[in-house]
């Protein structure tokens, strides 16, 4: 078994050595494709995680009408709590809000002898950020809510993050697909060139009675090897890029803390993807071998 494997691997690596430059091109293009897809996936999931961590910051403040009775305010709070997508509703009375304002802004409020202008306030955090818009629209229509500026909402920031995530997703998909196609064509061409270069060996194998698996397996191994080598290269470049970007973000935007690079997971995922990708490309190249060259 090991002896057989050694023969097949040796056959595959003979081809890799023989077509050095086209192999190099196939590996680097596959690496670029996997790097782009992997890089965009990192950016996307990183931003999604960042947005998730920021969810508590995308809270809204709902202000009750100043002339609303305590019963009406209490009923408003209960209705807000029941809304789908609401995580928590925290009530702060107008007195608490006023006191907080006076504490935070002593230069403005000191010496003022005016009636408390602050409304009763509900602070809402979300369990599902996507429903924030609906909740805001619903709250604005409630009769107990102040008609003008009754809801304070950081919708623009959230919309911006969603747009960036969408752009990353599409850009990654388009660029990744283009690079994948290019890498695939190169692997395909490499295998086709190998078949031309090894025509004599393949003919001899067929004449002496080698099975189709014996003739084809080295070519499939070659495709898989190119995919995996591309994946390893992509992992290394991603790792370097991740540490550079992390350092930049942490020094320029000290609030952002970029997580550790998941080296093992990235290596496994990219190598598996590269192997499947190489296998498919080489299979397609072998399958299209002209019928007169096939062992009948």
């Amino acid at each position: 078994m090991l002896d057989r494997l050694e023969f097949l691997l040796n056959e595959a690596f003979v081809s890799l050595r023989r077509n050095k430059w086209i192999t190099f091109a196939a590996i680097t293009t596959s690496a670029m494709a996997l790097f782009i897809i992997g890089g965009f996936a990192f950016a996307y999931f990183g931003l999604a995680s960042f947005a998730g961590n920021q969810e508590s910051k995308f809270d809204i403040n709902v202000f009750a009408r100043t002339d609303a009775s305590p019963e009406q305010v209490q009923a408003l709070g209960k209705r807000l709590e029941k809304l789908d997508g609401v995580k928590q509703v925290t009530f702060r009375s107008k007195a608490e809000v006023w006191k907080e304002f006076q504490t935070e802004n002593p230069e403005i409020s000191s010496g003022l002898e005016i009636e408390n202008p602050m409304p009763d306030t509900f602070n809402i955090t979300f369990s599902d950020l996507k429903k924030a818009k609906d909740i805001v629209a619903y709250a604005r229509k409630m009769p107990e809510v102040a008609p003008k500026d009754g809801v304070q909402y950081m919708g623009d920031v959230q919309a911006l993050i969603e747009q960036v995530m969408s752009a990353i997703r599409w850009l990654g998909l388009v660029l990744g697909t283009v690079m994948l196609a290019t890498g695939g064509i190169l692997i395909y061409n490499t295998i086709r060139l190998t078949m031309v270069a090894r025509k004599k060996e393949m003919r001899i194998m067929e004449l002496v009675g080698a099975t189709r698996q014996t003739v084809w397996t080295p070519l499939m191994i070659e495709g898989v090897a190119e995919g995996v080598m591309g994946a390893l290269l992509a992992t290394a470049v991603l790792w370097i890029a991740h540490s550079v970007v992390a350092k930049l973000l942490e020094t320029s935007l000290s609030v952002i803390k970029v997580g550790e690079f998941p080296l093992l997971l990235t290596t496994i995922v990219l190598c598996l993807s590269g192997a499947v990708y190489g296998l498919v490309c080489s299979y397609l190249a072998i399958r299209e071998r002209p019928t007169e060259e096939l062992p009948r």
Binding site: E206, L207, V208, G209, T211, L294, P295
Partner: peptide, 9 residues
């Protein structure tokens, strides 16, 4: 086609 290799042997 699957039988060819064994025949050729």
């Amino acid at each position: 086609p699957e039988e060819v290799p064994m025949l050729r042997r």
